[in-house]
Design a protein around this nucleic acid. Structure first.
Lengths: 138, 138
DNA sequence: ACTTAATTACGAATACTTTCGTAGCACTAA
DNA sequence: TTAGTGCTACGAAAGTATTCGTAATTAAGT
């Protein structure tokens, strides 16, 4: 019996997922056109990949029309979490702070974004104050 | 002529790099023992991988002793940058803020770390104020 | 000297990913 | 009906990555 686990996507599969996350349900042709902007490849290549992804459970499709419409079967959030976790564990030795400074160092955020992040941080710290009460230092 | 570019490491190669970044220069045996904690594999598999990495320029080695000692030839920072960039572009649509919230959401930082991050943010914002002067909103 | 154990070098098998050619079907227009 | 176009299905080639077996070499112990 084949496994068909949903937990992993290859590099090429990721590209397709990204297109579908952004566009929503799409035909192979539509996905293919977009992929072409980054890299030349044949139409049947994209088709085959999407068929494989269907088997793996990464995609679903609607076959009522002759031209099938594919959609993501997996939440982007799931992959984001997985990725971030992998990176923090693997590259930043469990230190989110380091990751964040890298992220900000290389991809300058807009002012609004920075403010948003600050708010978020304030919230977390405040929560800690309430919950952790007298927990001055580790 | 072979290319032997330094710019990419496969998944397995990454694991080896991580061991070497952490331990510093090590023998194949030492690396192998550590890898075993995560995944069964033969000694010569690790050996072969490290030899390939040597060819690619990812590692260097000292062969004065019979038991060779390998070391990373590439900076961890380089890979961190690369990775973070890839993730921000690919998964977070160029929004560092989102990435950061994910990072903090799933890997709770210590209080000290949070404070450190806040300081860092304050700095950035202050710099923007100076440079951007009357730049209230985009 | 001989045996044993640890090590390197390397070819080759296996496994996984990506790519594409070809066949067949459905729809449309002439 | 026939030709043309666009689609799916699918096998299989080509490209990469991973795994391991075997031979040769060295070091150490007996």
């Amino acid at each position: 019996m084949k496994s068909l686990k949903t937990n992993k996507a290859t590099e090429s599969e990721m590209e397709i997922l990204r297109v579908l996350w952004e566009r929503g349900p799409s035909t192979v042709r539509e996905v293919h056109e977009l992929l072409l902007k980054n890299k030349a490849s044949g139409y049947t290549t994209t088709l085959k990949l999407m068929q494989i992804m269907l088997e793996k459970g990464l995609l679903t499709r609607n076959t009522t029309n002759r031209t099938h419409v594919y959609a993501c079967a997996v939440k982007q959030v799931f992959f984001q979490k997985q990725l971030v976790g992998k990176i923090i564990d693997g590259m930043f030795k469990g230190s989110p702070a380091q990751l964040i400074m890298h992220a900000l160092g290389n991809h300058r955020a807009s002012r609004d974004e920075l403010i948003e992040i600050k708010k978020y941080l304030d919230n977390i710290v405040r929560q800690d104050d309430v919950k952790g009460k007298a927990n001055p230092k580790k």
